[in-house]
Amino acid sequence: MAGITGKDAALTAYANALATEAPKGRSLTQDALRRLFNNKAALVSIFVLTAIVLFALVGPYFLPWAYDKIDWAGIRKPPDWAKGHYFGTDQNGRDMLARTLQGTQMSLLVAGVATFVSVVIGILYGAIAGYFGGKIDAVMMRFVDIMYALPYILFVIILVVIFGRSPVLLFVGIGCLEWLTMARIVRGQTLSIKQREFIEAAKAGGAGPFTIIFRHIVPNLTGPVVIYATLTIPEIIITESFLSYLGLGVQEPQTSLGTLISFGAPVAEALPWMLFTPAAILVTMLLCLSYLGDGLRDALDPKDR
């Protein structure tokens, strides 16, 4: 579900800025990062996010219960510190905290892999369009415009239908459909880098187009990629939890935040901890990522303040 952070608008503006303020691409990004670190809300968000990620990765080793271990004596029990079920248990006697941490891991994993896939596709597509320019560029970017207009969640669902509900395909499928904005940014960046002397020099030295793209253009994209990834992760977390919520995503015994919420929702009246534990983590992460995104957007477009 794109659009939560207003990413497309912010990044398209950024791509335009990169394309028009040609040779300053790098310092534009550096300026943006400097402004970001002056933003208190963004800094706190980075801190909280880091804490959640570390806890999700390391926490399970310190918990008395594994996420799939059944405690036959503690089925459907509220939080109980003495037994080590800090956030209660579900209908099958599994520890909610352990399951929530495992779900957070899964959500982060999906987000990470899907973002990686979309960055790779976006870089290739955008660099090719920007480097070759002319008609190729026009056709390729027109295709991107068309894709923007189509409701991409439908295609994700179709992919899930075709390939079944395996998490790996979920990563790849979402990534395959999230690259549009990345392609726009990379194209803008490529257009501006293309004008610079070192590309001329590389061409004069007999380098082919793909050598130039991978040796000279891609390494110059670090800044935009970092920013793009930060803004894409929350959107993929939402998409993943949305699909899992509908039963189209991660399946038992593995779990994700969306899956947990979909199991917790129907029983929330009797067993509220089953809904609120994963919901709290999800909302906290999204809130932090959104503040971080806002910080980035202000950093990218200072006149907006």
Partner: peptide, 18 residues
């Protein structure tokens, strides 16, 4: 606006339903 945009609607739907 922040609440409306941050909380995914499947979660929000369940919360208001509850």
């Amino acid at each position: 606006v922040l609440i409306g945009i941050i909380i995914p609607n499947f979660l929000m739907a369940n919360l208001v339903q509850l």
